[in-house]
Design a protein around this nucleic acid. Structure first.
Length: 494
RNA sequence: GGGCCGUUAGCUCAGUUGGCAGAGCACCUGACUUUUAAUCAGGUGGUCGCAGGUUCGAGACCUGCACGGCCUACCA
C-alpha cells in the first residue's frame, strides 16, 4: 500500500513523463511576461477609469497555480506571483487543440505557468485574464499545504519556510517589512554622511561584548577563529583610521540559549560617530526609529502585544539608578559590594545566582524589575562602570559611564555609549574584566591589537548598537524572533 | 539544564470509559461555460513521532527517547 503522498508524487511524475513524451518541456528556460499580476490588475483599473483608449487589453503574466475551479467547459485558475494574485479564465477548454488539451489536463495546484490573453472583469467583479495561450514553466511534484487553513505546523513552517511563504501571505508581509526597515536605516545613515563598511566575522578573539562565541578552525593557517559576537572593536579601528562616521549592518553570532528573543545568529546595526557623545546618539536613534517607522508603515506608532507604542521623539529618558530604585525599591549605590547587594536581593525573595558578580546582579534587577515596564520607548541612562568596560565615565563621576540602553515593548532595542578612548584606562578595564572572568572560570584575553590601535589616538566618539531583529519584531507585532528571521536555527532532525 | 504542552492521511484537525482509524481540504473518476473556501455524486489514501512496557485488546494508560512550542534558567 502506498501512502497518499507517494501516490500523489507518483501521479505527478507520470504526468511529467507523458508531457516529455509529447514533446512538452516541463522546465523551459524563460518566459516573457509583460505584466506582474498587480500590474495587470492596475492596467485594467486604468482602462475602467477611462485612462486608456484601447479596445482590448493584452497581458502576459506568470505565476504559481494556487486554486482551480473547473466548471465543465470553462475553468477558473488563480495564479500568484511576487506581486499578488490574479484570476485566469479558460473558456471552451473542450475546444483546445490536442497539445494544449493534454497540457491543460495535466496542470496541478503548485505548477508554475505563463499565460497570455485579454483583461476583463467577471460578473462578480474579479479582475481576470481570459486566456488565449498558456505554457508550463515548472511542474510541481509535491502537493501544496491546504488552501484555507494554510500551513500552521510551526516546525514545518520554519524548516520549509518556502511553504510558509506560499501558504501564508502575512508571513510574506513581515519579511517585506523587514527588508524595507533595513533599506530605510541605510538611507537614514547614508544621508547623514555615514560610510557603510564590512569587517571580519572570523576573528582571532571575539571582543566587543561578553558572550560565548562559536569557535571554528582555519586549516591552512592552522588557527582557531571565533565568529564575531559584536562589530564594535573593528569599527572603532576605522574611526581611528579617520572615517568619522561608519556603520555596519551585519550578522553577529552568540553561542548561548535560544529563546523567543534570541537566535544564535542575529543582525546588528552598529554605528560610530567621531566627535559625538551619547546624547547625540540618543537624538539620532529616536529620530532614526521614528523615521524608519514612518517611512515603512506610514505612521509613528505600532501595536505590540495589545499596547500602542509611539516612537515619536523625544523618548522618555530616565536615570538607571532612579529607574531601578523606582521599580525594585533597591538603590544599588547603597550596596556597592556584591555580598551586600546579594543579601538585599535575597531579602526580597529574589532568586540570586551566587556566581553572579555585582554588575550581573544589577543587570538582573534591570531585566526583572525595570525592563518589563518599559513599553513606550525609553532611554535608561548612566550605567555603573563595572557593567560597561568599553564606555567612558562621566566627567564628574568615575563610577558611572555615559551609556544608555533603549527599550520598547519591554525589550532591549539598543545599547550605546560615549566610547572610552583612553588606552591606559581601557587596558585597566580589560584587565579588571579578565580577573572577573577568571573568577567565573572562563579565560579571556586582552585584545592587544585593539589597545595598540587606541594608543594612536581615537577621537571622542559616540557608538550605537541596535538589534535589528527585535526592531522588526516591534514593527510587525511579532512575539518571537523566529517570526522575523527567515530560517531560524533549529536542531537538525534525525 | 528544569517545568508544562504538542506530535493521528500531503495539509488543517476530531478521536468519548482502553474495544473495527475518522472529517474537511487536497488527490482520482464523473456532471457542470462567470466561479472564487465553486457546487453535486462516487472513490483512493494511515509506521497514530520512535522504542519498550501494562493488557485478552493501546492512537488512548506507564517508562524512556527524538523533534517542536511556551515558560524558566543561561545571556553585555
Amino acid at each position: 500500500m502506498t501512502s497518499r503522498i507517494e501516490h500523489i508524487s507518483q501521479q505527478r511524475r507520470e504526468k511529467l513523463d507523458r508531457l516529455r513524451a509529447s514533446g512538452i518541456n516541463p522546465y523551459p528556460h524563460r518566459y516573457h511576461r509583460t505584466h506582474t499580476a498587480q500590474q495587470a490588475v492596475d492596467l485594467l483599473k486604468q482602462k475602467e477609469a477611462g485612462l486608456s483608449q484601447a479596445e482590448e487589453l493584452e497581458a502576459a503574466v506568470a505565476g504559481r497555480i494556487t486554486a482551480r475551479r473547473l466548471m465543465g467547459k470553462a475553468a477558473f485558475i488563480d495564479i500568484r506571483d511576487g506581486s499578488g494574485k490574479i484570476q485566469l479564465l479558460f473558456q471552451d477548454i473542450k475546444q483546445l487543440d490536442a497539445r494544449r488539451s493534454e497540457l491543460f489536463d495535466s496542470l496541478d495546484l503548485g505548477d508554475i505557468i505563463g499565460v497570455s490573453g485579454t483583461l476583463l472583469r467577471t460578473r462578480t467583479g474579479e479582475p481576470t485574464i481570459k486566456v488565449r495561450d498558456f505554457t508550463l514553466l515548472a511542474k510541481s511534484l509535491q502537493p501544496l499545504p491546504e488552501k484555507w487553513h494554510g500551513l500552521s505546523d510551526t516546525e514545518k513552517r520554519y524548516r520549509q519556510r518556502y511553504l510558509d511563504l506560499i501558504a501564508n501571505t502575512e508571513v510574506r508581509d513581515i519579511f517585506q517589512i523587514r527588508s524595507r526597515v533595513i533599506s530605510a536605516i541605510r538611507e537614514f545613515l547614508n544621508q547623514r554622511g555615514f560610510l557603510e563598511v564590512e569587517t571580519p566575522a572570523l576573528q582571532p578573539s571575539a571582543g566587543g561584548a561578553l558572550a560565548r562565541p562559536f569557535v571554528t578552525h582555519h586549516h591552512a593557517l592552522d588557527q582557531d577563529f571565533y565568529l564575531r559576537i559584536a562589530l564594535e572593536l573593528h569599527l572603532k579601528r576605522l574611526i581611528i583610521g579617520g572615517f568619522d562616521k561608519v556603520y555596519e549592518l551585519g550578522r553577529a553570532f552568540r553561542n548561548e540559549g535560544i529563546s523567543t528573543r534570541h537566535n544564535p545568529e542575529f543582525t546588528m546595526l552598529e554605528s560610530y560617530e567621531a566627535y559625538a557623545d551619547y546624547n547625540d546618539i540618543m537624538n539620532m536613534l529616536e529620530e532614526m526609529v521614528a523615521g524608519v517607522c514612518q517611512q515603512v508603515l506610514c505612521k509613528e506608532e505600532v501595536e505590540f502585544e495589545g499596547n500602542t507604542i509611539s516612537f515619536k521623539p523625544p523618548w522618555r529618558r530616565i536615570n538607571l539608578r532612579e529607574a531601578v530604585k523606582e521599580y525594585s525599591g533597591i538603590d544599588f549605590v547603597q550596596y556597592p559590594e556584591v555580598d551586600l547587594l546579594r543579601s538585599r536581593m535575597e531579602e526580597m525573595k529574589i532568586e540570586v545566582d551566587p556566581e553572579k558578580n555585582w554588575a550581573r546582579l544589577v543587570d538582573e534587577l534591570i531585566s526583572t524589575f525595570v525592563e518589563p515596564h518599559l513599553l513606550q520607548p525609553t532611554f535608561l541612562i548612566d550605567y555603573p562602570v563595572s557593567m560597561s568596560p568599553l564606555a567612558k565615565t562621566k566627567p564628574d563621576n568615575d563610577r558611572v559611564v555615559e551609556r544608555f540602553e533603549a527599550f520598547a515593548g519591554g525589550m532591549e532595542l539598543a545599547n550605546a555609549f560615549t566610547e572610552l578612548n583612553d588606552p591606559i584606562e581601557q587596558r585597566r578595564r580589560f584587565v579588571q574584566q579578565q580577573k572577573e572572568r577568571r573568577k567565573e572560570g572562563e579565560a579571556e584575553t586582552v585584545d592587544e591589537d585593539f589597545l595598540l590601535a587606541l594608543e594612536y589616538g581615537m577621537p571622542p566618539t559616540g557608538g550605537l548598537g541596535v538589534g535589528i531583529d527585535r526592531l522588526v519584531m516591534l514593527l510587525t507585532n511579532q512575539q518571537s524572533i523566529r517570526e522575523v528571521i527567515l530560517f531560524p536555527q533549529l536542531k537538525e532532525k534525525p
